[in-house]
């Protein structure tokens, strides 16, 4: 090729491989550490110092405890409810909005674009949002988790950009055949951008799966808590409270902390390899300005 590498450049090249590999390992290691710790024998785990490169002993006690914990199970169920409900609402509303944004030359289009995009840079903030939910009577209701995040302007723009790439001729010929906008959207546009639909769906799903703040401020009854809120209880709020006198229980508590992370993260890591080829596409579509 065009390279006539000097010795210095060879060294730099090798160094570059080393640096990038090290960065990637650092991105990966914490989760591996958790995985190994969750499978370890609690006694040996607590005695262990330093990096964990393999489970210390082997035990599934942590997972047994997690999977028989009613709070975690109900959290899991609730998260699935919010995820399914949220996806239905989001995937109905977002294409409608995105289609309208992709269309040109109708009155008030620019006003509407401004109305949507302005919310990316200015919002009422925590307190007014909370009061709106309260005054709508949604406080402590499951709708308070599903509705406020139903449309993400970022995802709207991602989808709008994808729609804009659909050839206009398709739309025109459909119009001549007497198709209205709904038919054009559902018969032509959406089938044309299946990959982007998947990306947007994934973005919504991940953010709903990982969200906890709205649930914390809007949900009072713990029977409606999603998984992430229970995780917070277990991982953060009780982190310093090793209250139990019983050493075995204490060890088990440590193990549960790791096991619960794995249980809560596995669904994402399972989808991840299938989804990751779309990531670049999604990010690029969202970055087009205007």
């Amino acid at each position: 090729m065009m390279d006539k590498r000097t010795p210095l450049e060879k060294v730099l090249h090798a160094l570059n491989y080393a640096v990038v590999t090290a960065v990637s390992l650092m991105c990966l290691y914490p989760m591996l550490h958790v995985l190994f710790a969750s499978l370890s024998d609690p006694m040996r785990l607590l005695a262990h110092r330093g990096l964990l490169l393999w489970p210390q002993g082997f035990s599934l006690k942590g997972y047994q405890a997690v999977l028989s914990n009613p709070n975690i199970l109900s959290g899991y169920m609730n998260t699935i409810i919010y995820l399914a409900g949220g996806l239905v609402v989001s995937m109905v509303l977002t294409p409608l909005g995105a289609y309208a944004l992709a269309c040109k030359d109708y009155p008030f289009r620019n006003v509407l674009v401004f109305l949507f995009v302005f919310t990316m840079y200015f919002s009422g903030g925590l307190i007014p949002n909370f009061l709106v939910i309260k005054n709508l009577g949604l406080y402590d209701s499951r709708w308070a988790i599903i509705l406020p995040t139903a449309v993400s302007t970022y995802n709207l723009i991602v989808m709008r950009t994808a729609f804009s790439s659909v050839p206009g001729a398709l739309q025109e010929s459909a119009c001549l055949d007497g198709a209205n906008d709904f038919v054009i959207l559902y018969r032509i546009y959406i089938p044309c951008i299946r990959a982007t639909m998947a990306v947007v769906c994934l973005f919504y799903a991940v953010s709903q799966w990982n969200s906890w703040f709205n649930s914390m401020i809007y949900l009072q009854s713990s029977s409606k808590w999603p998984l992430q809120l229970w995780l917070r209880e277990i991982l953060i709020n009780s982190a310093s409270g090793g209250t139990s006198d019983d050493a075995d229980a204490l060890y088990l508590q440590e193990l549960i902390r790791y096991a619960v992370i794995i249980v809560a993260t596995v669904p994402i890591l399972v989808v991840y390899p299938y989804a990751q080829k779309y990531f670049m596409k999604g990010v690029m579509l969202g970055s087009v300005k205007g």
Partner: peptide, 21 residues
């Protein structure tokens, strides 16, 4: 390497903070 380096972005904030704690 790229795929691996995206991963932390998908881990929930609660889990990340739990790990940090």
């Amino acid at each position: 390497l790229q795929t691996v380096s995206y991963m932390p972005h998908f881990i929930s904030l609660v889990v990340v903070c739990g790990l940090l704690v």
